[in-house]
């Protein structure tokens, strides 16, 4: 019987520091056949493990169009992520997945996108940003609204210039330093009837506190509940809808039904957001 818990053998092939608290790992599946068969969609995630330090779910952070390797950005937080920060290029890791329902591809390609990110939330949205840079023809207009506490925490800073060729980048921080030239304040302030078209599709990735205000604003600006997508975070152990850690009361599982949900899908779920 196939064991869904068996990790696929993979290797860390590159490690880059992308902000004061964050590192970007490039991962390659060792077996060629498995590597070629491994395909993921925007919005999906995988479970990464280091023997002895356990497993944890991570969102993909590179374009699905890149086949040989994929990337994950990691903040140093728990025991597994602390261990990851110590690892060197060439180390073996285990992966399981891809998991989650991913994003409706048609919607992504045929509509203007508003990507709202807070803190480390930019990483999973990078799958779309990078994809749009590689294949601009597959996308309509993309606007990114990204907020952080301070400019040191901004992820992928060195990429913004490159991204800006195809994508509108809007940045804001809570506490600016002297060199800061962009907006100051919460990301919600950047969303106005002048900046946002009401027939856009919005994807939000960030802390729950951001969701509440951003959703309210986007609804005010005329976006429909079906067109506002939120990525939900929960503790996960199995990734396949059994262990109950990521269950939402009422019957949805973040790991199998999400992690991306439209606001219409979860607005009546108590404590969903």
């Amino acid at each position: 019987m196939k064991n869904p818990y068996n990790p696929i053998g993979a290797k860390i092939v590159k490690i880059e520091k992308i902000s004061s608290i964050n590192k970007l790992f490039t991962i390659k599946i060792k077996d060629e056949k498995t590597r070629n068969a491994f395909k993921f969609r925007h919005g999906q995630f995988f479970i990464l493990s280091v023997p002895g330090f356990g497993e944890a779910p991570f969102g993909f952070c590179s374009s699905p169009a890149i086949k040989e390797t994929f990337q994950v950005s990691v903040d140093k937080r728990g025991s597994l992520t602390s261990k990851l920060f110590e690892l060197k290029v060439g180390t073996d890791v285990g992966i399981r997945g891809p998991y989650g329902n991913g994003f409706n591809r048609k919607k992504i390609k045929s509509r203007d996108l508003v990507l709202v990110a807070g803190g480390c939330g930019l990483s999973p949205l990078r799958t779309i940003i990078q994809d749009a840079n590689l294949n601009p023809k597959n996308f309509q207009n993309i606007q990114v609204f990204y907020g952080c506490r301070n400019s040191k925490l901004l992820a992928f800073k060195s990429d913004y210039k490159k991204w800006s060729k195809n994508i509108e980048m809007n940045l804001t921080v809570d506490t600016p330093d002297k060199a800061w030239k962009n907006s100051v304040g919460v990301v919600t302030n950047l969303l106005t009837s002048e900046t946002i078209k009401s027939d856009s599709v919005a994807i939000l990735v960030g802390p729950p506190v951001m969701y509440k205000f951003v959703i309210q604003k986007l609804v005010e600006l005329g976006l429909s509940n079906e067109d506002i997508y939120i990525s939900l975070e929960r503790r996960m152990h199995c990734g396949i809808g059994v262990c109950q850690h990521c269950a939402l009361v009422g019957g949805k599982y973040i790991c199998t039904d999400g992690p991306l949900f439209s606001y219409a899908e979860i607005k009546d779920t108590p404590e969903g957001i």
Binding site: Y5, P51, G52, F53, G54, E55, H237, V242, C243, H245
Partner: peptide, 17 residues
């Protein structure tokens, strides 16, 4: 009731998930 958690334990010369 069947909720479970998965974790690693380091034993002498091996690791147990």
């Amino acid at each position: 009731c069947f909720c479970f958690k998965i974790s690693d334990e380091i034993k002498k010369d091996k690791i147990v998930r």
